[in-house]
Amino acid sequence: MRYLKSSSTLFFVLCVFFCSARAQAELSQDQLAAKTRGIELYNQYKAISAKPKLKIAADAGDPEAQYYLGEAIRTNDKYMTAEAVSSYEAAALQGDIYSMIRLAGEKNDLCVVMKNCSKTRKEPGEWGKMASDTASARAAEGSAEAMYLKYRVTGDDKWLEKSAENGYVFSQYFLGIMYRQGHGHFLLPSRRAEAIEGLMKASAEGGYPKAMLEYGAILAEKNDYQGFRYWNKKAAEAGYAVAVFGYGSYLGEEKSEFGFTYDPINSYALLSVLLELDGGGGMVDLVNFKLPELSAKMTAEQIEQSTELAKKWADTHPPLSFFPDKL
């Protein structure tokens, strides 16, 4: 029986992998562009605007778009609707572990009350087992992301640690945050601090913008202001909205505590770029508070230069993002 169960799991994983790859391969250029833009909007906390873009690729069968569509619907409606469940199910049946985890956490059996559950409906526990089995299979193949998802399913810290050790940058960042909050066992506080710094450094160097800011802050505490400036700029250049605001604000300080060169033109430009973030996150309010302070010290010509620089920045850098946790 053990052999049959193992073979069944392997067969399932191979099937969902094939279906997922096939669905993504069938996207046209327009559908792929819609998916990309939809995810960008979602990561800017614009769930309403993201939905129609994501739906184009989701209707074409793309599992990642289906997952994000479910997220956009759930976020906008503030609860798990039947439409969101349907989108998650479509993705989960193609092997999307994120969707399986979402469905496993859904305890509100609204369809039971309404007596309109689909015939193929699975219980949360079934989705949880499917998520665990699929994550285990992919982790066994060396997927560090799957190791992280195994942690999300089981809550076992060893999977998060293993994911971080295998180079998954989000796990490195997340584990560092957990250590900072007191998780893990260290004989000395200095050992904890060393572990946090090592994880943030690895994640930052691996390209994760949130870790760039965290690592920069650690360097600042050690009076390494050159390192602090470097990682703030890197995070901003990666499109991290919080870093763009911070970096832009630092450039607008006539006397910088951290050694930033006063540059009101670039400061105004960077802050102006953030005005497109008029969804959630409160970024526009922060920018509108800062810009009048800057403009009061600038000429009309300087402001015009800033406007041109803002356009150039938007054209030559990644889309702005808050980089929310995918789960």
Rank of each mutant, 00 (worst) to 15 (best):
F17P: 01
A139W: 02
G279S: 10
G70Y: 05
N76G: 02
A269S: 08
W313Q: 00
H183F: 14
K51R: 15
D62W: 02
N43R: 13
D157I: 13
Q305V: 04
Q31P: 07
Y45T: 06
F228R: 07
I48E: 15
M80P: 00
R37T: 11
M1A: 12
D278T: 02
K129H: 12
Y98C: 09
L275S: 07
F12K: 11
T36C: 00
T316H: 04
S272G: 15
E71F: 06
A104D: 11
V153G: 03
K55R: 15
L175K: 00
T316L: 08
A269Y: 03
S321M: 06
K312P: 06
Y67E: 12
N288H: 07
P319V: 03
G176F: 06
Y148N: 13
G198I: 02
G182T: 05
A25N: 06
F11M: 08
K222P: 04
P319M: 02
M212C: 10
L188K: 15
Y179C: 05
F11V: 10
I56V: 15
L160S: 01
E40A: 12
P189Y: 10
K122G: 01
R192P: 11
K210T: 04
E40T: 14
T120I: 13
C15Y: 14
I303N: 01
R74S: 12
A82G: 08
K162P: 04
A65L: 03
G142V: 05
L219F: 04
D133T: 01
G227A: 01
Y42F: 14
L103C: 11
A235L: 10
E26M: 12
K222T: 10
A21K: 14
I265S: 10
N232F: 07
D30V: 09
S267D: 10
V169W: 05
E83A: 13
Y98A: 09
A58N: 06
K150F: 02
Y148E: 09
S136T: 14
W127N: 05
A137V: 08
G128P: 05
Q66I: 05
I177K: 07
E40D: 15
L219Y: 09
M298L: 11
A236V: 01
D96Q: 14
K78E: 15
A58R: 04
L41P: 03
E253Y: 10
E301K: 14
E126Q: 14
F12Q: 13
A47N: 13
G207A: 04
G248M: 05
L271Y: 00
I56F: 03
P292A: 00
E293Y: 12
S20W: 08
E123W: 11
R2P: 06
E126H: 06
L188P: 03
A310D: 02
L275W: 07
E214N: 11
T307W: 11
E83H: 06
Q172G: 09
A296W: 00
V287W: 00
G239W: 00
S99W: 02
I39A: 00
A217T: 13
G279N: 08
S306Y: 03
D30N: 12
E254R: 12
L32R: 14
S249V: 07
A33F: 02
N43P: 09
G279K: 07
F174H: 13
W159H: 15
F245C: 11
S272W: 03
A72Y: 01
